[in-house]
């Protein structure tokens, strides 16, 4: 396998598939998830499991609002978060921000208002994917669509990808030992089909397509919301200059990323791999030095 050149380990990279050695390849595919229209129906979660034959993830009432699947994992490749946040001073209703009751109502009953944000999370198919970079077996690979996929028949369950992912996406399935995550429906893409989750989403919260086109759509949507006064709207993972070179699956959020369980400023760990190796080298040198020094001097 070829050694990736320094520049493609981080920073802007417009064509990850070409970088991975695909001479002729389709346009990069991805998701734009517009959480402002997500209704939390979880059709995406179910469709994903149904199509990919992912096992259930256990029956546990968590008390985390209506979210009983809790997080992305080896057996949950789409995850719908339910952010139930009390708000003390409800925003005026015409801001387009859903609130409960009017200020007066809240004051009368003594209850706070509430805001309920829903958002469907998924593997980001990072431009610089740490999971892929650290995988020692080559089980994780970059597809011709620019997506990141695990080959279950190669994975040896070393688990390195797990702590490497800055979004906490990929995980090992306990009963099985191997790593699993969203494949961006690689099999469906090859058949020119829309991924199962996007296909099932009733409100077009999950939009699938060519990444550059999705970027344009997202920018328009953001402008539209800002125009309506929804200042809290922001894009997440859209910026090709960010710590992972931008996400193949990016989002429109209505609050800070961490509120949804997303890292505010993720960085691909291999951005620092050069420095890491340098320090390892220096430390190895130090060990040699200590060794040599130990044998120098008076014989005792």
């Amino acid at each position: 396998m070829s050694t990736p050149v320094e520049s493609s380990l981080w920073g802007r990279l417009d064509d990850p598939a070409a970088d991975a050695g695909y001479a002729d390849h389709p346009k990069r595919k991805g998701f734009f998830t517009d959480t402002s229209v997500c209704i939390g129906c979880k059709a995406c979660e179910v469709a994903c499991k149904e199509w990919n034959q992912v096992p259930d993830d256990g029956f546990l009432l968590t008390g985390m609002s209506y979210d009983n699947s809790q997080q992305l994992g080896a057996s949950t490749w789409r995850h719908v978060a339910f952010v139930e946040k009390p708000i003390d001073v409800p925003a005026p209703v015409d801001l387009g921000m859903p609130t409960i009751g009017s200020e007066d109502q809240g004051a009368v009953s003594g209850d706070a208002g509430v805001r309920w944000l829903m958002s469907s999370d998924v593997c980001k198919h990072c431009t610089h994917a740490a999971c892929l970079d650290v995988c020692p077996t080559g089980a994780l690979f970059r597809t011709e669509f620019g997506t990141v996929v695990v080959q279950p028949d190669v994975c040896n369950g070393c688990g390195y990808c797990v702590p490497a992912c800055p979004y906490g996406v990929i995980d090992l399935r306990k009963e099985d030992g191997r790593a699993f995550k969203c494949t961006l429906c690689y099999d469906r893409l090859k058949d020119d089909q829309t991924p199962a989750c996007a296909q099932a989403c009733p409100t077009e919260s999950i939009q699938f397509g060519d990444l550059d086109e999705l970027h344009e759509r997202a920018d328009r949507r953001l402008a539209e919301l800002h125009e309506k006064g929804v200042d809290v709207a922001r894009l997440y993972g859209r910026d090709p200059e960010d710590g992972v070179g931008g996400d193949g699956a990016f989002f429109l959020l209505l609050d800070e990323p961490e509120v949804y369980g997303l890292p505010p400023d993720p960085v691909v760990t291999t951005r620092d791999i050069g420095s890491i190796w340098k320090h390892v080298g220096a430390a190895a040198g130090a060990l040699v030095a200590v060794g040599v020094a130990s044998f120098l001097g008076r014989r005792r």
Binding site: K42, E45, V46, K49, E50, P55, D56, D57, G58, F59, L60, L61, G63, Y66, N68, S69, S109, G110, D111
Partner: peptide, 28 residues
């Protein structure tokens, strides 16, 4: 069906914080 059951795995009731305090009900 497991895929649906895991999403809402148990019967529950929804109450306001005020009622919870009034009757000593605890979340979960």
């Amino acid at each position: 069906l497991p895929y649906l059951t895991e999403l809402q795995p148990e019967p529950f009731c929804e109450v306001s914080p005020r009622l919870a305090a009034e009757r000593g009900l605890e979340h979960l």
